[in-house]
């Protein structure tokens, strides 16, 4: 907390900046940081941004069962969503299925692809988020494509990856080139550190900006109100992720 904020608060602030202006943000399971960022953006928007959080009772207004999230996304009613992966490669292909050996008898088996193979195609702003930045995760080529980062021309694809947030940096994704570009390094992180821990090649601008620290008014909001809201779904996260309110 040397910089006046926790590591989680920094990541929430980074994700929140990517969500500004969205009309409807949906957040999947096991995603406390994206969930907190979405709730923060809703608070800043005065309620204009809608937020649907899987697993939440208070922040889930769907009434048509498990299919509604996907139907809603297919119609363009969801502006932003989050995906991760056991492996992610430089073309933003994601693998949520397994690694080592041959499918389906992978040495390591992850839960499965969930809605990724659909939502990655239809949600305009998909933000990739991983709390582990290592060569184990960021590989040259994923061993199973749960959902591809880019598609052939002629494939219906209004959506796709826009950015990737890690504990070290923020990447932007260029859909035309099918490549990541380093957008900013988090405070105290070096380019070498990112290169050493990333298994794929990415573009680097001449001058790499430093990720802005969380804005004081947003930190206040996080610590005073968002902490309580996110505790409904992630009590353990809420207890440890935030500094005490001033």
């Amino acid at each position: 907390m040397s910089a006046g904020h926790t590591p989680q608060e920094l990541l929430i602030a980074v994700v929140a900046r990517l969500l500004e202006g969205c009309g409807h943000v949906a957040v999947g399971a096991s995603s406390p940081i994206p969930g907190a960022a979405a709730l923060l953006v809703r608070a800043l928007s005065g309620g204009a941004t809608r937020v649907s959080i899987l697993g939440s009772t208070r922040n889930n207004f769907f009434t048509n069962g498990g299919t509604e999230l996907f139907d809603c996304a297919a119609q363009g009613r969801i502006d932003a969503f989050f995906l991760g992966g056991g492996q992610i490669d430089g073309q933003a292909n994601i693998n949520l299925v397994g690694a080592g050996g041959e499918y389906p008898r992978h040495k390591v088996r992850w839960p499965g692809s969930f809605g990724s193979a659909f939502l990655y195609f239809v949600v305009p702003k998909v933000i990739l988020f991983r709390e582990e930045h290592t060569r184990r995760v960021f590989v040259p080529r994923v061993e199973f494509i749960s959902a591809p980062g880019v598609s052939e021309p002629g494939v219906y694809r209004p959506g796709g990856p826009q950015a990737m947030v890690t504990p070290l940096c923020l990447f932007a994704f260029d859909r035309d080139r099918g490549r990541f570009r380093l957008a900013s390094l988090h405070p105290g992180v070096t380019l070498e550190q990112v290169r050493d821990n990333t298994g794929f090649d990415f573009d680097v601008p001449d001058a790499v900006p430093t990720t802005a620290v969380p804005e004081p008014d947003r930190l206040d909001l996080l610590r005073n109100s968002i902490r309580g809201e996110i505790a409904e779904i992630y009590p353990r996260f809420a207890a440890g992720a935030f500094a005490d309110a001033a």
Binding site: A117, F118, L119, I145, S146, S151, V155
Partner: peptide, 25 residues
């Protein structure tokens, strides 16, 4: 969900977006 909805409707199949280029497919 789509496959089950096809079953619900007595339809033989359902078209679905996405999936192209995935190893699921």
């Amino acid at each position: 969900h789509s496959a089950l909805q096809a079953g619900q409707k007595g339809a033989p199949f359902m078209p679905i977006r996405g999936l192209l280029g995935s190893d699921i497919l």
